[in-house]
Design a protein around this nucleic acid. Sequence first.
DNA 1: TCGAACCTAAACAGCA
DNA 2: CTGCTGTTTAGGTTCG
Length: 697
Amino acid sequence: MMVESATETIRTTSSNQNGVSSLSSQSEGGGREGGSNGDTNGEISPVDLLHLQQQQALQAARQFLLQQATGLSSPSSNEVKQSPVQVPVSMAMMTPQMITPQQMQQILSPPQLQALLQQQQALMLQQLQEYYKKQQEQLHLQLLSQQQQAGKQAKEQQQLGSKQLAFQQQLIQMQQLQQQHILNLQRQGLVGLQPGQGAVPIQSLQQAMCPTDLQQLWKDVASVQSAEEAIKHEGLDLSTNSSNSTSYSASKVSPQIPHHPLPNGQNSVHTPKRDRARLFEWISSFTKGESSDEHLTPYSKGTPLQSTHSTHEEHTASHPLYGHGECKWPGCEALCEDMGQFIKHLNSEHALDDRSTAQCRVQMQVVQQLEIQLAKESERLQAMMTHLHMRPSEPKPFNQPLNLASSGSLLKRDSEGFPEGLPHPPTSAATPITPLRQGPSVISSSSLHGVGPIRRRNSDKFCTPIASELAQNCEFYKNADVRPPFTYASLIRHAILESPDRQLTLNEIYNWFTRMFAYFRRNTATWKNAVRHNLSLHKCFVRVENVKGAVWTVDEVEYQKRRPPKMTGSPTLVKNMISGLGFGSLNASYQAALAESSLSLLNSPTLVNNSTGASLNMLHVGHDDVSSTVEQVNSNGSCSPGLSPQQYGHHVHVKEEPAEMEEDSRPVSLIASVTQNLSMPGDERDMDEELPTEELE
DNA sequence: TCGAACCTAAACAGCA
DNA sequence: CTGCTGTTTAGGTTCG
């Protein structure tokens, strides 16, 4: 996705600004120039011509690089439209160290980078080939014109013949040189791929983009420049030189310098002097911070780096290119004892020359990629937030579970059905999303309550166990008028289990709701009715007549049984959960969640062995482990610790039983309770599937 | 499409 | 009579 758009960006930039045609037009200009030279100065020697051609070639190649870099700094409208958050490269170039290779490695995924680079490689190679082709045509034209001249002047025929021969030889040499150059670029990764070439050596880009490699990459750029210098100064002799100096492992990936043209579309057949002057203008416009300041993003604006840089970098106490006693120029790492030495080093080694400029361009490219990536990620974030109805302007809590964000009803399946049993993504249990949420100031809109119920089972099912979720977000729910992502049943159960005696009166349940959740401080009639409804409806809630009145308890077995663990939703999740019992390399919080999940899973009747008595005991033990250990650990601490494990599940099916009966039934086994229950014909709820055998089978 | 689970609303009864 | 508690029914949504 990102690669697509990135290349698209490049393409649009190129097409908009004559990127592709600039080379050809340039070579055409060069051709005309060479042609006129040939016409007017027939005396020009082939060697001079060749030298001129070479210089033109070098100049064009350099210009080509410059155009790419310049094109980056002037994003087209498409780019702007495409990535509103995009940061202009100009200011990034001022502080090349702002985005380190490590950061780049972190942000850009290797496949993305690789694909992008390959695209750019292909494009660049294509253009280079095109350029060389033009050069060859040019030479042929000149040859032709010379031949015509020769035809007119038969007198000098022989001389010309030898001249032609020499010229042709040089032409061949020139072609070899060009091929060598392309090959050389390919080796260095600057041009890596023939356009039609499908198979690309898949190398680990991550490895390629590790800091050391990036440094090497910088050095490589420098070597390219050196090679070009060599070409310039040594004429034809460069081939061995450059290829040797750039013997570079093909497995390395160098950053591709895309072919962005000059923004003004100028042809670049300038003399080197003029080119440098323009280059200096171009760079100094950044270093002076004139135009770049308006491009500063909130991220970079006002940072120390930026501020020091925008003043006068050479004279500030701290230099963005200087740190830890060494030069931070990409690929340099020269040790400088003090700032003065560094300044000296900077001025001598990183003066305004082709190499530094090329490095600047590469850095710009790096920044550009990062910006594209940032824009993409920002877009994604926006889309996600929009999807979750959590636009940044909205004061809704970020930590709000997905389901309740959309409507504001209780979740359909909560941790109750898969109660603390299922593993949950570390979103709420292990990962610190919490800092992102907005906290107590969050007051939900009326839409939260006005809209009908929207429940999502899945998130409820596999997300957070109520205990850990509540433990983590206790304060949040207390203050934020946000509907908790749990079912009434799970909340009631949690409230009861959290109580010292694991039993609550209805009013105490009400109080727990209002105490724990700001949401339940209004619309009391509705949710209280729902609570009562749930208490009555679910068999897992057992009403016990106490001396002080009726209290409600939880039949954990029934609760677990109530919803058989349908793990169809995420088999791998279950698998991982089970395999995660080893708790190998997970972090502590997630281990806790896993432990909770695993224990709960063990409690699940479907996973327990089927022999009645043992299973029941096991059930009890395991279940108590979950409830007393996990729940208490994970709850917000209000649980009373003094309860014996056997207290769970003892009040099973004592509904409508007299209080003393309940008291006596405490030590009684579950079987006894169930048997008792069987004798109650009125309780139909307990009749279906309540037999112990069924329960355990 | 169907069933399960859940939510909401409401009717009703019993009791203090 | 009122309010609380508890039960039951009905209708709706969501999801597998």
